[in-house]
Design a protein around this nucleic acid. Structure first.
Lengths: 141, 141
DNA sequence: TCAGAAATGTAGCATGTGCTACATTTACTG
DNA sequence: CAGTAAATGTAGCACATGCTACATTTCTGA
């Protein structure tokens, strides 16, 4: 019994780590989409302000995400979303709303729900999202 | 309207980042508890195997968590949990079970549920956990 | 128009987490 | 009890993300 009775589920941990590396893409694209909708454009300082980080960190990450094809931007210019970025932002926004709806449904206070949704959303698979939606509809009857 | 119509909710992002820094403590203590329960002791290589990472990475993190008061260990010796570590592990284990129960309840396939639970659990507040439990009981009637 | 404010950019540092390669220590087995 | 396998440890690298300090560019208003 050297193999341990608890099964080795390194797969789940690996999956979580992989998801982590996408979190910034999800947060940034969604935020940039919001800023564009609200202001017509998204600027680095605004992104930094909303995320509560320094403008330098925001700048560096925006550049990385630009290289990865989520943003289009140029020196001293605003940030725009590519098609890829828009798609991701739309998906994230909808997922975020669904999670908030669900947390609201089960009676989680609004402020707590906002924080939890922010942390949790990156780790919700399409299957779970679908299940959540169905579950919500049952109650909306 | 330079302030942006969308409210600035940097608080939620900050909270998520803070939670992130505790994720390894949660994963490691829970895993070490499982290993001790199964094998009588926890060794670095086993931790590494279960997490799907190299033993070097596991070693370094275990050391950090030892400095932070979660583990007791010594060179070439097994890893044990401090009272602080045991408390955290127990809380995490129960939370994990609750989340799995909930995902099962709404019909998420087992394998997907395992991955989602692993990713999500670190971001579930006490309030949401309580709400989840109450929600589950309603259905268990 | 031009000076100061705001935004952007660069340099350089820290921490956490991932890796491989290699060294040493411990444990097992013939 | 010696030799090898397994476990542990060290050195040194990478990347993502956080920071401050300082430089440069752009915008804005008197």
């Amino acid at each position: 019994m050297t193999k341990t009775t608890s099964s080795i589920r390194s797969g789940a941990f690996k999956a979580t780590r992989k998801t982590h590396s996408n979190e910034s893409a999800e947060d940034y694209t969604e935020l940039v989409a919001d800023l564009i909708e609200a202001n017509g454009e998204a600027r680095t300082v605004e992104v930094a302000r909303h995320l509560g980080i320094s403008h330098v960190t925001a700048l560096r990450t925006i550049r990385r995400l630009q290289n990865e094809g989520f943003f289009e931007t140029a020196k001293h210019k605003p940030i725009y979303l590519t098609a890829k970025g828009k798609k991701l932002a739309a998906y994230c926004k909808e997922r975020h709303q669904t999670i908030l709806q669900f947390l609201n449904l089960i009676g989680v206070p609004e402020k707590v729900a906002e924080v939890d949704a922010e942390g949790v959303e990156h780790h919700i698979s399409k299957e779970t999202l679908r299940a959540l939606k169905e579950h919500i509809s049952k109650f909306a009857e």
